[in-house]
Amino acid sequence: MSFEFPLVFFTVLTQLACGMAIFLCWRMWINPDSDDLPKRRAWLWTGGVAAVGLIASLCHLGQPFQAYMALINLGASSLSWEVLAFSCFTALAFLVYFVYSRALALLAAIIGAVGLFTQGLTYAPPSMPAINNVFPMVVFWLSAIALGASSLTLIRSAEYNLAGRLAMCALIAVLLIAPSIWLSGSTTMRETGLLWLKSGGFWCGAVLILLAFVATWFDKGGKILRFASLFCGVFLTRMIFFSGTVHTASNMGLPFN
């Protein structure tokens, strides 16, 4: 079982960064004069997180020094768009820190959203029947919103916003419901469902997200712990997403119904 750590780090970190950008941008536009506006340094963090994610993705490549070539197939490959979108996003995030314009922030957020969208497409291949649908898209978006909202509380002490809470709740629901649905699907789907539900990492991750969700009602201290719980939860469930999703090629010769 290959855990695909580069992809786990890449997706989790870029989703965190996009979430941060979306909320930072939203704050810049909705309430630009509020005195608890997040500092522009937050954009440096956003860019930094995204950059680390991108570097992690390089570790996945056989030829990391030729990663720039991944931009070639914009005509057909969603992965090409993903690479383009997140490269631009990272650059933009750093740029917003230096220039600090609302327009640039909006652009960064939009590009980040495009990135999330391409991720949802790329990691839903037809070879993995369980996730060859909107599941990855939904999970990635919910993760981005939840992580983004949670990260905001690290920057300033405000109550949790509704979007973040909803996203966390929905994320747990989706993560728990999907494997159960897979159990009544095709052979490969069933195997995927069983692997997920038997995985200790998956349950730990789900519990950590749940804890983070519950903790949003408790204001006193431990905000780093709350964020860490959510982050680790997303990270662990992402690990099973990449390692425990069964590929049709591993079932050749076996019944597929």
Partner: peptide, 11 residues
């Protein structure tokens, strides 16, 4: 968007 990329990135 695609058309504006330099030839370096052509297939």
């Amino acid at each position: 968007a695609a058309a504006s990329l330099p030839a370096l990135f052509a297939p």
